[in-house]
Amino acid sequence: MTNRNPHSATAPQPSRRSVCKNIRADRELYLLLLPGIAVLLLFKYTPMYGVLIAFKDYSIFDGMGGSPWVGMDNFRKLFESDDFLLVLRNTVEISLLKLVFLFPLPIIAAILLNELRQLAFRKAVQTVIYLPHFLSWIIISGLFIDLLSINGGLVNKLLGSFGIEPIPFFLSNAYFRGVLVTTAGWKETGWSTIVYLAAFSTIDPGLYEAARMDGAGRWKRIWHVTLPGISPVIVLMLILRLGSMFTGDTEQILAMYNSTVYKSSDIIGTYVYRMGLGKQEYSFTTAVGLFESVIGFALILSGNYLSRKYLRRGIW
């Protein structure tokens, strides 16, 4: 049993003749692209010269022309700072933890949601579990500090009834990453299911019927129909997720961490934020951003390459 949805990557390449035949129609395709390209060029590429700030000692009042070049100094400042190795390691490790534990969650949740038979219940649940996406990290941080408090927090009370000593989740390097991953999962899983739920609608119900006729149970149907049906979206999401590996966690960690857990949770974004407090370090922050972007872009390129090679599909 295979997924019948044809996909770009597996579609046969067009022959030269058909390109010529469709030349008029293709002009129409480029025409459709025009507004998007125009917005992109004007608002994204015109200001792109700003990356040069990373190689200057930039002052906003002197402008691009007036600020002196400093070559790679700003990058050196990042790489040679005492804590760089620590924060780099934390960044990578926290990202990987989140990728491994959180990336599959919305897919699983979407599939399980799909298995709920009561339509009204399903709709209600969908509407409720995406709520936390709308809460800011500051609020969520406050909620979990209360919930995990050692002075009467619900979780520690519960642990206490099993005779377990209270755990200072927010103050312990051993537990804090767990808190980061759990809260991120709680906040975004419901919201992230939406794109998979939409993808379910592309699956031909006939396939389910056929599977049923073949006597396939629920698991087989999920494995052979549902998953292949949404695999293009899964691949897309995974590759795009790779691009934000280095940048995604700053806001959350800034809202939740404290100095006692810097050792396990200080990442590039939070470190640069603290060092730059009260300073006008445009050049340094641009350099850090550029470093993160280059890595993110490299990850996307290799993700897409590997995906094309082994899964025979990719973004391009």
Partner: peptide, 16 residues
């Protein structure tokens, strides 16, 4: 130039 980030360093270390 240095006051704010040094204050942050100070408070972090005092807490530690």
């Amino acid at each position: 130039e240095n006051k704010l980030n040094l204050l942050q360093l100070q408070i972090d270390e005092m807490l530690n």
